[in-house]
Amino acid sequence: MSQESPSRKMMTRKASDNKYLHKDFHLSMNILLKYIYENYGTDQMIRYLKQYTEAYLGSLNKKMKTGDINSLAEYLTDIYQKEDWPVDIHVTGEKIIIEQKTCPGISQIKAKGETPCPHYIETYNTVYNTLCQNTPFVYKIEFFDEETGACKQIFERK
């Protein structure tokens, strides 16, 4: 018996039927950042980003403490691949250089007519500086265009 009729529609999917890529999550993330920023200020927004990084990226931070730069490079490559986002990641034994022409978050937020949260750069700066805490690596942003998220980021051994 068909379960479809002009007045009845059904859709069934398995997780494996689709690629996991919901870019509107960037909008939800931006709303969360704005909520914290507008209600509690920049310092608390930064505190939240530290909390997130310590919780979510704690295991990567542990690997980095041993001087493992490859795990960091793999992580960075993986998140850009999953985003389907063009980026140039150059890895040597001592350094990882990441260059992007636009940021996937800022691009999606603007494409939907919204404005990125003030200090959106902290989703890079705070997250990656926290990731480097107590490791032999330092993180720096050589430049960051607030309008597009074009930037050059460097992780390097101290």
Partner: peptide, 15 residues
């Protein structure tokens, strides 16, 4: 960068 694929843990910590 917080990728949209990392949003769920970011939200859970946000809550």
């Amino acid at each position: 960068m917080i990728s949209c694929t990392e949003f769920i843990p970011a939200y859970s910590e946000g809550f």
